[in-house]
């Protein structure tokens, strides 16, 4: 198994922190939309699940989804979202991590990343249940969490995969991905 080097770890945590900053700005948008259109609000919710799967898609090493998720949550906590986001970060990161682990950390497709997002969504639903957010009428419950799951898939699956591809095009991923066998053979020629 590929272990995390110090460089990988720092980059993972950096990604989490950058997401934390982004989520701070995203939150402004979310707060504006929140009271007006509850449906749109749930559709924006996927951003909160994106950090873990995104980090994994970028670094492709075990542990990154979990660590990045916690890093993002701790930044959010420091930025004034309240410490409870740490628990959400923990649960969501763990769920995404377990899903990638179930595929032996070898699948980076839209489908698997999206499923990781849905796993995170389920984990946050579990916490909401304990918290008491979920004591809604059944129809409201289904609408709320159904939309949230769709949003999770769009953000962590489609958006994250395409943004990682765009980042690959910038060449920055060559700093972090392990060197391919193909590249060694190129050297021999």
């Amino acid at each position: 198994m590929k272990k995390l080097k110090f460089t990988d770890l720092l980059i993972t945590i950096m990604i989490g922190v950058v997401f934390g900053v982004l989520m701070k700005f995203w939150d402004d948008l979310y707060t504006v939309v929140k009271p007006i259109i509850p449906v749109a609000r749930q559709l924006l919710y996927g951003m909160w699940f994106m950090v873990g799967p995104f980090a994994f898609l970028l670094l492709r090493k075990p542990g990154t989804a979990f660590i990045a998720s916690i890093a993002g949550a701790s930044l959010s906590a420091f930025a004034g979202h309240g410490i409870e986001v740490l628990m959400y970060g923990f649960a969501q990161g763990l769920a995404a991590e377990l899903l990638f682990a179930a595929f032996r950390y070898k699948r980076y497709s839209i489908m698997i990343a999206g499923l990781a997002g849905i796993a995170s969504c389920l984990a946050s639903f579990g916490l909401d249940l304990i918290y008491g957010y979920a004591a809604l009428e059944t129809w409201a419950l289904i609408v709320k969490y159904g939309l949230r799951a769709i949003s999770a898939f769009i953000f962590t699956g489609i958006f994250a995969v395409y943004i990682v591809r765009a980042l690959e095009a910038t060449g920055v991923t060559s700093l972090i991905r392990p060197v391919d066998k193909k590249e060694y053979t190129l050297l021999d020629q």
Binding site: T7, I15, L167, T170
Partner: peptide
């Protein structure tokens, strides 16, 4: 995000 991440990854590395 793309420029932001590219730059932060370089910096962290």
């Amino acid at each position: 995000t793309v420029p932001l991440f590219a730059q932060s990854i370089r910096r962290a590395q």
